[in-house]
Simulated scan of single mutants.
Amino acid sequence: MQYRNGQRLPPEALGVPVRLSVNPRARRLSIRIDARAGEAVLVAPSERKLGEVVAFAHTKADWMRQRLAERVEGQPLEPGETIPLFGRDTRLVATGGAGAARLIDGPEGPVIQSGGEGEAFARRVENLIKRLARQVLVERTEHHLRTLGQKPVRVSIADTKSRWGSCSPHNRSIRYSWRVIMAPPAVADYLAAHEVAHLVHADHSPAYWSVVARLVGDHRPFRKWLREHGAALHAVGR
């Protein structure tokens, strides 16, 4: 069977929804779980290797089913909910009226207060989180650029499905998922370092990881945190 990049296989093929993905930078066959989309993503370095990753996935069918069964349910942005922000539980409180959302320190911890109802309330809260994300990620990006003696880059904030960030060295641009700002500050700082380091090395070679280590030290705890808690961040606002 001829497989192609972006192709989706019917659930009965492997027991779970599956999408095929070609990543020329990949150094091996791999499987990742896209909790937001509710599917397993089979990654190969080229289209001719897609058949091999499908065969590999057959040996991991039980693992894929288990991981997808564990995915976190969506968490709406509505009054009374508690969401993570900077790694801390933050309550959402309605104030009435049409005022913009703002973050305050309440007697029992951080609180986001916002006007609006329903979708309007959720939109104001999300816009606040995005503004905070841009502020922090731009500052940490600039910090790591200075450390490496790199020139400025263009930073954009998006809501990517699975990747926390991406770097395009050829046009000196970095894109981040705003959701990382809900993680502890050290994790967001690691993400900025991870992307800035790609300006020096575009791959994930040992030389690349040595640059990351220069910026944030041992990066493994931060990567582990994102693997273990990332699905919960992607569930916020769903």
Rank of each mutant, 00 (worst) to 15 (best):
S46E: 15
E47C: 07
E47L: 03
E47T: 06
R48Q: 14
R48H: 09
K49D: 15
K49Q: 15
L50K: 08
G51Y: 05
G51A: 12
G51E: 08
E52S: 14
E52Y: 03
V53W: 14
V53T: 15
V53R: 13
V54E: 11
V54Q: 05
A55I: 07
A55D: 13
A55R: 15
F56E: 04
F56K: 08
F56S: 00
A57E: 10
A57V: 11
A57L: 11
H58A: 14
H58G: 06
H58S: 15
T59C: 07
T59W: 04
K60R: 15
K60E: 09
A61H: 02
A61N: 02
A61W: 05
A61P: 02
D62E: 11
D62V: 08
D62R: 08
W63K: 09
M64H: 05
R65I: 00
R65M: 04
R65C: 00
R65D: 03
R65L: 00
Q66N: 06
Q66A: 13
Q66H: 11
R67V: 01
L68P: 02
E70N: 05
G74M: 12
G74H: 07
Q75P: 01
Q75G: 04
L77Q: 04
L77I: 07
E78K: 15
E78Y: 05
E78A: 15
P79W: 13
P79D: 14
G80K: 07
G80R: 03
G80V: 03
G80T: 04
G80Y: 08
E81L: 07
E81D: 02
E81N: 09
T82F: 03
T82E: 09
I83T: 11
I83Q: 10
P84D: 10
L85A: 06
L85V: 11
F86G: 14
G87E: 10
G87V: 11
G87F: 13
G87P: 09
G87T: 13
R88Y: 05
R88V: 06
R88Q: 15
D89Y: 01
T90M: 04
T90Q: 02
T90E: 00
R91P: 00
R91T: 00
R91L: 09
L92S: 05
L92N: 03
L92K: 08
A94C: 04
A94K: 09
T95G: 14
T95Y: 00
T95R: 13
G96R: 07
G96C: 03
G96K: 06
G97D: 03
G97L: 08
G97C: 08
G97T: 08
A98F: 02
A98Q: 14
G99D: 15
G99R: 15
G99L: 13
A100G: 01
A100N: 09
A101I: 05
A101M: 09
